[in-house]
């Protein structure tokens, strides 16, 4: 049995009220679906006595609509809603695919899009009971001074484990953040920072209220890929989103974003060199996938932060990327 620490639960009725509570209560944390924060609280991962519960503002933030050449997804949409939404499936099948592979049926009903984008980083040395962590002497992310993954490491490398982030970054999504000081809209890629202790730019009094995907991205050939040990419940051991713009049967632009490596999803660099590659036959598509996979393998270094053999994850990455490219271009 895992017990929660003492908590006061605040239940605002509007976004404005929610961010005012965040401003006024130091250390308060957000509770949306609860699928990430509640187990983490049970593990004693956060020092907080206050939760700001967002269920009361579900109606305000539970929508998927097209507006100003963008698909806008309210942060309180459930992951299940995202996975099964007819327009999402039609416009961004890779995103619906990513959402449908998150956890299990109950967790997809509870978990929210905002919650998935703000998911805390995960590591075999942190997502453990307080007793377990105390026996090991804690770690950088909470209560300790050492990293058990990278010996001598000074920066937390707990893994970004959200399924929607890599594909949304590859699709060029933006996020809208609201605080009592106003709002800002930033690329999702800039939202994440390479710090496992707190891997987003979100200020203490800020709430992610919406994800926006340019409708133009619906023209991109796209795929999501996920490596996991079981076909349900598991967090990714590796995941990625790939988008390819094809013009006159040649690659015009390409983005590959890989997750579950370290603290933030990583865009694979130097892919512009692949522009102009022909993709008119299955052989050419396979060759492009292999080339992209090798570039990903050179840049991505799986660590022991996830309880799945890093050597195997390193070996399988180019294979998964090649298959993803084939899915994107052959379907």
């Amino acid at each position: 049995m895992l017990t929660l620490p003492m908590l006061a639960v605040h239940q605002p009725k509007s976004v404005d009220e929610a961010v005012a509570l965040l401003r006024d209560i130091p250390g308060a944390r957000l509770l949306a679906g609860g699928t990430d924060i509640v187990p983490n609280l049970k593990y004693g991962m956060y020092e907080t006595g206050n939760l700001v519960a967002l269920r009361g503002i579900s109606r305000e933030l539970r929508y998927i609509r097209e507006e100003e050449s963008e698909l806008r997804i309210g942060a309180m949409c459930s992951v299940d809603q995202l996975a099964n939404h007819a327009r999402v499936i039609e416009l961004f099948p890779s995103l619906a695919d990513a959402a449908s592979q998150i956890a299990g049926p109950q967790l997809r009903r509870m978990g929210t899009v905002g919650g998935n984008l703000c998911l805390d980083t995960r590591c075999v040395y942190i997502n453990q009971s307080h007793f377990w962590r105390s026996a090991l002497g804690y770690c950088l992310k909470k209560d300790g001074t050492v990293c058990h993954v990278v010996k001598g490491g000074q920066r937390c490398v707990a893994a970004a484990s959200n399924d929607t982030a890599p594909i949304l970054v590859a699709l060029g999504a933006m996020v809208r953040l609201v605080s009592p000081r106003g709002e800002r809209i930033i690329p999702l890629d800039d939202f994440y920072i390479a710090d496992g202790v707190k891997n987003t730019q979100l200020a203490r009094d800020e709430l992610l209220v919406e994800a926006r995907i340019p409708l133009a991205a619906a023209r991109l050939r796209q795929a999501y890929g996920k490596l996991r040990l079981r076909q349900a419940i598991d967090f990714p051991a590796l995941n990625f989103g790939v988008t390819i713009s094809v013009e006159e049967q040649k690659v015009a632009a390409l983005r590959l974003c890989v997750g579950a490596l370290a603290a933030r999803p990583a865009l694979v660099r130097h892919v512009d060199e692949l522009r102009g590659r022909p993709v008119s036959t299955p052989e050419e598509i396979r060759a492009l996938g292999q080339e992209l996979g090798l570039r990903a393998q050179r840049q991505c270094k799986p660590l022991t932060n996830i309880g799945v053999d890093p050597e195997w994850r390193r070996e399988i990455l180019p294979v998964l990327v090649r298959r993803g490219v084939e899915r994107a271009l052959l379907s």
Binding site: V9, V38, A53, R55, R59, D80, Q106, R109, M110
Partner: peptide, 27 residues
Amino acid sequence: NAARASGSSSRGEPILSCITLAQDAQG
């Protein structure tokens, strides 16, 4: 109305009570 909007079936959808706060389940 919210139930209809979320497309809930008659008895609703399966959720996990061990990670739902009692205070947050009042609605």
